[in-house]
């Protein structure tokens, strides 16, 4: 019935235990309107399928030159000679000229080692449903379900709305992990099928929000209020980013906003910045620099947690 409608997904993760209640499967939709410099999934940002290259899986040019031959645009060249971190062998690597590469995927199709892979797969609603429904016994036992994350799931509104509707029809608890940056019509449309929103709040100052993420925050704050009015439930997520929003004032302001949303907010979660996603920037190698900041200390996080708790908010730390 939805044969033509497809969504672009960049990852599906089973046994997700941080993305809502119980044991969940998280579906990561590809594409995001924001460009947060601390993003730990840079491959989630572009809306099209992208070529990734994982150096440690590559056999090197002395063993295999298939990708050089397969590339129709001649975008793959011999690159640096480096030590493979896994095998400790010195390997002559490839170099992908991202200006020439058009992410056609021909090289990934012939790479037997999966060193070259395409990030972004088109699913129909029914195919994706079949995939995520497999873990229903775990959802049922643990009070879990399916979380649609991203990227920004609301940027693929039609697909996500259909998927949520189908999940609910199958008796699965649903959560939507969102930046909140979408037209409210989109949110109103999915509200009956979304049991929970995992709702990001990054900064209360719109100018600073825009400087960091590329978009202002008014729409996001308005949407949060409307979700609360229309009876939606939200777990508010605050990524704690050094020198951006980790000051007491910034967190207090965000906390006060959360409090104004009343019963709609089930919990406020602090997500301390981490740099575990750094190697993903190298796989994508699209000219952006790897984010480098010291993760906040545990002491710092517990101060912020206490501060929010003093506002009467239930708080957890991820």
């Amino acid at each position: 019935m939805d044969k033509e409608l497809t969504g672009k997904v960049y990852d599906i993760q089973g046994f997700s235990v941080q993305d809502g209640p119980g044991i969940r499967t998280t579906v990561f939709m590809k594409g995001c309107p924001m460009r947060c410099p601390w993003c730990h999934s840079p491959e989630s940002q572009a809306f099209h399928a992208q070529l990734l290259w994982i150096a440690m899986k590559c056999a090197g040019l002395d063993a295999c030159t298939k990708c050089l031959d397969a590339c129709p645009r001649g975008a793959i060249f011999p690159g640096k000679t480096l030590k493979n971190e896994a095998t400790r062998e010195t390997v002559r690597h490839i170099r992908i000229d991202r200006a020439i590469c058009d992410d056609c995927g021909d090289c990934a199709r012939i790479c037997v080692r999966n060193a070259l892979t395409m990030c972004g797969t088109d699913y129909t609603v029914e195919d994706l449903l079949e995939r995520v429904i497999k873990d229903k016994p775990f959802y049922d036992r643990s009070g879990g379900g399916v979380t649609i994350s991203g990227g920004e799931p609301l940027s693929q509104p039609e697909f996500v709305s259909r998927l949520l509707e189908r999940l609910k029809a199958c008796g699965v608890h649903t959560a939507v992990d969102t930046t909140g940056y979408a037209q409210y019509d989109v949110i109103r449309n999915i509200l009956p099928h979304a049991d929970l929103f995992l709702y990001d709040l990054k900064h209360m100052d719109s100018r600073r929000h825009q400087t960091a993420t590329g978009v202002p925050n008014q729409l996001i704050l308005e949407n949060a209020k409307k979700i609360a009015q229309d009876g939606g439930k939200m777990q508010i997520r605050i990524p704690v980013i050094p020198d951006f929003n980790d000051s007491d004032e910034s967190v207090r302001e965000t906390g006060l906003f959360c409090r104004s949303l009343g019963q709609a907010v089930t919990v406020v979660q602090l997500l301390p910045y981490h740099n575990l996603g750094a190697m993903k920037y190298l796989r994508l190698d699209d000219g952006r620099s790897v984010p480098e900041a010291e993760p906040p200390t545990e002491g710092k996080i517990s101060i912020l947690k206490a501060l929010l708790q003093d506002l009467g908010l239930p708080v957890t730390v991820h």
């Binding site: 941080q18 440690m56 971190e85 981490h274 575990l276 996603g277």
Partner: peptide
Amino acid sequence: AGFSAYFVEL
């Protein structure tokens, strides 16, 4: 923290 990766690839 919700992030999962192969350790040796980090």
